[in-house]
Amino acid sequence: MSITDTDTVSWNTEALDEILSNDGGRPVLFTNARILTMDPLIGAMVGADILFVGSLIVGAGPGIVTAAEDDNAIVVDCTGMTIVPAVVDTIALAGGRGRRSTYVATLTPGNATDFLVVPDELADDVPSAVATLVSRPEQVRALVAAGCPVLWAGTDVPGRATAPKTGIPAAADLTGSPRVGVWIDRNDFLHQELTADGRYDETRGGRPHAYQGRYWIDGDRVDYLDDLGFWAYGEFRGDELHHAGYVMKLG
């Protein structure tokens, strides 16, 4: 095992244990890092900190570590490390964002706690840092998603979330679900019936069976797979179903 490998394996193991046992109330501070925020206002910072509580970043920049003890923060020393967004805004990288407010996936206070930590020598810029995750994952010091470690010191974090299985799932039995029924838009043009066996049937402008297929509900999201082969989606918002520009309520 090389010196680099040894350093990777032992990287901030005590801090990881504290983060995993944290109930979300204690802030977590990654300190003394080079941070490539991808935010056009904040830019890149050296010897800087990123502070988060749960799934939200609450601070970024030098000097935050001075309050770590006051706030009972979990401190992760990132000396020699670069922190970049884990989700890369490729449109921003290509200069395709006209306003700062349109940027996504930046390490900006108020944004999601999704970031990647790699050694400085593997992070000349954001693309090369992200490439490390794909080509040399054993060199990744941390991958954090919504405030929860996914990778740490090059290995999977115990208890990490697992990706859903690929492929089309079996239809769920939705008998008794309050979302089963006929949803009708404000203009009485679209009638979308969601049945308990996971099928939908749309009437449009009085034309029955305009679209039919399968659907799945995941939280407040509904995914549709039409019998013609295309996918679509909708979102439940309170007692409304929003789909393709239509706002529907149960009839």
Rank of each mutant, 00 (worst) to 15 (best):
I3Y: 10
V9N: 02
S10G: 07
W11T: 00
A15T: 04
A15Y: 08
L16N: 07
E18K: 15
E18V: 04
D23C: 04
G24F: 05
P27T: 06
P27C: 07
A33S: 15
A33Q: 02
I35Y: 12
I35P: 14
L36P: 06
L41I: 15
L41C: 04
I50K: 01
L51C: 10
L51Q: 10
V53Q: 11
G54T: 13
A60K: 00
P62F: 14
P62K: 15
G63P: 06
G63Y: 05
I64S: 03
T66D: 08
A67L: 12
A68T: 08
D71G: 02
D71T: 10
D71A: 11
N72P: 00
A73S: 15
A73F: 13
I74C: 02
I74H: 05
V75D: 04
V76C: 06
D77C: 01
C78N: 07
T79N: 04
P85F: 08
V87K: 15
V87M: 12
I91F: 10
L93P: 03
G95P: 02
G98D: 11
R99T: 12
R100I: 14
R100W: 10
S101D: 07
T102W: 14
Y103R: 03
A105C: 05
A105Q: 09
T106D: 11
P109Y: 06
G110N: 13
G110V: 09
N111Q: 13
A112D: 01
L116E: 09
V118L: 01
P119H: 06
P119Y: 13
D120C: 07
E121L: 05
L122I: 09
A123V: 14
D124Q: 15
D124G: 11
A129Y: 04
A129D: 09
T132G: 04
S135Q: 15
R136C: 11
R136P: 00
A142M: 12
V144N: 07
V144W: 01
A145G: 03
A145W: 10
A146H: 13
G147R: 00
G147M: 06
V150K: 08
A153M: 06
G154H: 08
V157D: 03
V157Q: 02
P158R: 05
G159L: 10
A161I: 01
A161G: 03
T162K: 01
T162N: 02
A163Q: 06
A172V: 14
L174F: 02
G176V: 01
R179S: 03
R179E: 06
V180I: 15
G181V: 07
W183D: 00
D185I: 08
R186V: 12
R186G: 01
D188R: 15
L194A: 08
T195K: 12
T195V: 11
A196P: 08
G198L: 10
Y200S: 07
E202K: 04
G206F: 00
R207D: 06
H209V: 03
Y211K: 11
Y211S: 08
Q212F: 04
G213K: 01
I217M: 11
D218H: 02
D218K: 01
G219L: 06
D220H: 01
R221C: 02
L225E: 12
D226Q: 06
F230E: 09
W231Y: 14
Y233D: 03
E235F: 14
F236T: 06
R237W: 05
D239L: 00
H242I: 15
Y246D: 12
L250V: 10
L250F: 07
